[in-house]
Structure formats: structure tokens, C-alpha cells
Amino acid sequence: MSYAVEQNEKFAAYANPERLVSTQWLASTLEAGALADGKLVVVESDEDVLLYETGHIPGSVKIDWHTDLNDEVTRDYVNGEAFGALAAAKGISRDTTVVIYGDKSNWWAAYALWVFTLFGHEDVRLLDGGRDKWIAEGRDLTTERTAPVPGDYPVVERNDAPIRAFKDDVLAHFGKPLIDVRSPEEYTGQRTHMPAYPEEGALRGGHIPTAASIPWARAAAPDGSYRSREELEALYLGEAGLTAGDDVVAYCRIGERSSHTWFALKYLLGFDTVRNYDGSWTEWGNAVRVPIAKGTERGTVPA
């Protein structure tokens, strides 16, 4: 059985409070010996591949977005076999409650959570505020290596369709809302990549026509936790113009920052159909003959 859902006022306002835990909840749950029976596994997922090694939450395991979750050859995620093997090696079984946290307001943790969701892992939660909030509160860190007791994880086929959009899905999506979570400079097309850094850029700058610009970090408070429901509604229902029941696609440059926004829309505001377009600008900005809008205007639905 999975762990009881944390009850607090902030989370209660969200559509799916069971997707978040607070640092206080995690600290007391760990203190009560939660890691001993394999029912709870804490996963750290960071942008920096060495950050976990400098100190992590005691008993947590590391999953690296790039080396563990991305297929090494094809631009895709790992398959069911590789995911099952990874999860089992980290001590995760199919019914384990997984709590994921990471650096930079949980940017990469949300991405890992999204990949767990592609495999239909039922009980996967984010630590609200992530690594920075945990550290800011002076909570325990260790460099002790965690040696998990292997879990038992079945081979589950990934189910992409409900939460992942491909380029053709986006082309068929025109007329319905899109959220671009990149920086304003990337949105307008002023910049496709960092100066003197051509390799991972795109041949064209701009955004997918009609996409609203809501940089991902605006959903995060200064302490790295998600903003309140009211604040998120002002951002996405107010500024971006979404309405309840909308079918939404979010994208960024490679799909990581938009996972953070996907989580907010899906679990905090309760939109049923939210997909992350992980091909994002590195695909769209290089694809032949796809429509692009430049400048600060959203642009119109292509004819």
C-alpha cells in the first residue's frame, strides 16, 4: 500500500494533492523508518550529473535524466525493459511510493516524474521545493552511498499517448492552446541558443504559432516550491488564457523545463489532457516547412 496523502492547506487547494509532499513530511516519514521496507524510495534527479555525490538526502538514490532515462542511441526514452531494470536496481517495485526531488526548483525531478508516468508508475510524487528547500532548511545530507535492496519491477510498455506529444500531434493540435515555457528571448526568436554555442541550437528562431509565453520558472516560488493554486490560476487561466477542460500542449527546448509546467497544469490545476512535446524547439526549429511565429505576438493558426 502506498503512503497516505499529505494533508495541508496549500496542497489541499490543488487538484491532485497526492502528487506532492513537503520537506517536513519527508523528513518525518524518513525519521519514522520509511525506507526500511522498500515501500518508499526517494530519488534525486539533477541537472548536474555529480551533484548527488556531493551530498544527498540520506537513503536516497540517484537517477540521471540523460544517462538513465534517455535512450543512448535513438532520441527517445528507454524502453520497458531498461526502465524496469533501472527501477529495480534503485530499489523500486511497481507499488513503491516514489518521491523525486532535485536541483533548480525540481526542473529535472519533474522531468523524471514525467518519464515515470510514461511507464504508468502509479504513486510518484515531487518533493515540493526540491533539493534547495531541503538544504535551505538545514536538513540532513550525506555522502554515504545508498545500497538499495533490489526491487521487483515488471516490464511495462511505455504509454506515450496521454502525456506526450510528437511533432505531428502538435501540427494537428492547432486551434487548441500551446504553452511555450522558454525564456522570452527564445520565444521571440532573438536567440535560438547560447552565443558561440551552435551545436545544440536550432536553425530557426521563434515559437510555435499561437503558443502563449509563460516561462517555466514563473510557476515556482523563490524557495523552489510550486506557487499556490491561486497564483497558478492567475498565470495560466489569466495570463495564458486557458479555460477549464482545455487540451494543452507544453514545450521548451528539449522537453525538460516543460515537464515542470506539465506537472503544474496536470496535477495542480487539474487539466485532464496535458501533453509535453519533448521534441520541443530543437525539433520544431529544425523541421522543414513547419510554421513559425516570430516576435512577441502569439501569431495565428496556420491556414
Binding site: D48, V49, L50, L51, E53, T54, D103
Partner: peptide, 9 residues
């Protein structure tokens, strides 16, 4: 910064 060990490395 210390939170960027790869870059520091």
C-alpha cells in the same frame, strides 16, 4: 558554485 560540481570539475 558548489552546487555545480561538474562545471567545477
Amino acid at each position: 558554485p558548489p552546487e555545480a560540481p561538474t562545471t567545477r570539475g
